[in-house]
């Protein structure tokens, strides 16, 4: 069967494979994920907290990114930071995706009063600038890595919810949903088995966006002393460097920014490539 028609996903995968930028960014993200797995399992960078030399040694062959105030290797800290960045990106994106999809599906599908309440709620929340809401929640819940995940997650679900709601409203009257209803599918089945797969491209695109925004937000929170505690993160490393730069110590800022740059860039480019591959509206356009 050569002429078998391909699904949206197969099409998307084909065009992603042809897109050099997409392949490049997926490779970069793959490398970061691999590094995160290696540090979690302790294969590399497990002794990041060990003193390897004097305080603030400049980069050398032995310590490619120099050392920090406690004489720890900045390279190992940066590597250990990959783990935290991937964790922050992943957990936050999952939290915000689950909330966004749940509310978006419910509002779009049921409409009426339910829709009004959900729209009212997210319009209200969206009126509070995200960064202030983040401060407020972190302030009230206290410092800590799990608080960080929760705060970043519950402040970033609204764009996805809006998009999902809009798409579900367009889809729920379509023939395939009516057919499912005629076959006796209940509301939940129609929502999750029939509509959700058809709008899932939005979820994926938004996921990559949330992922990189969470990593960037962690830096701002670190500056306010609300960031990751007890483990190295790129945010705390960049924040530390505010006292180091005047002494000419640039390597901690350099290493963390460098590491973050490639991951966030890859996620940004992948997000764009995914949109081109998955959004049928844009197909064939420059």
């Amino acid at each position: 069967m050569e002429n078998e028609s391909k699904s949206l996903w197969a099409h998307a995968w084909d065009s992603l494979k042809k897109d050099k930028t997409a392949v490049f960014s997926m490779t970069i993200i793959g490398i970061y994920v691999l590094l995160a797995i290696l540090t979690v399992t302790g294969v590399i960078a497990s002794d990041w907290s060990k003193e390897v030399g004097a305080s603030y040694l400049p980069p050398s062959l032995e310590n490619p990114f120099g050392t920090d105030i406690f004489g720890r290797s900045v390279l190992l800290k940066t590597l250990k930071g990959v783990e935290m960045a991937i964790a922050i990106g992943c957990v936050t994106a999952i939290i915000s995706t689950v909330i966004g999809v749940l509310f978006g599906l419910t509002a779009g599908y049921f409409g009426g009063k339910v829709d009004e309440v959900i729209v009212w709620f997210y319009t209200s929340q969206a009126s509070i600038p995200g960064i202030m809401l983040l401060f407020a929640i972190m302030f009230v819940l206290g410092k800590g890595t799990s608080t960080l995940f929760i705060a970043l997650g519950i402040t970033s679900w609204i764009p996805l919810c809006r998009l999902v709601r809009g798409e579900v409203m367009r889809h729920k009257e379509r023939e395939y949903v009516q057919a499912a209803a005629a076959l006796g599918a209940g509301n939940r089945r129609r929502m999750l088995k029939h509509i959700l797969p058809n709008i899932f491209h939005i979820v994926i695109i938004q996921f990559s966006l949330r992922f990189q925004m969470a990593i960037k937000s962690e830096v701002i929170l670190s500056y306010l002393g609300l960031g990751v505690q007890g483990a190295p993160s790129w945010g705390t490393m960049i924040d530390d460097s505010k006292l180091e730069l005047s002494r000419g110590v640039w390597w901690q800022l350099g290493a963390a920014t460098f590491a973050m740059f490639f991951l966030v860039l890859a996620l940004n480019l992948l997000g764009d490539a995914l949109r081109d591959a998955l959004d049928p509206k844009l197909k064939g356009k420059a």
């Binding site: 670190s222 924040d239 920014t257 490639f262």
Partner: peptide
């Protein structure tokens, strides 16, 4: 893709 704090610093 570069965090704002890094620019400021």
């Amino acid at each position: 893709s570069i965090p704002s704090l890094a620019y400021i610093l």
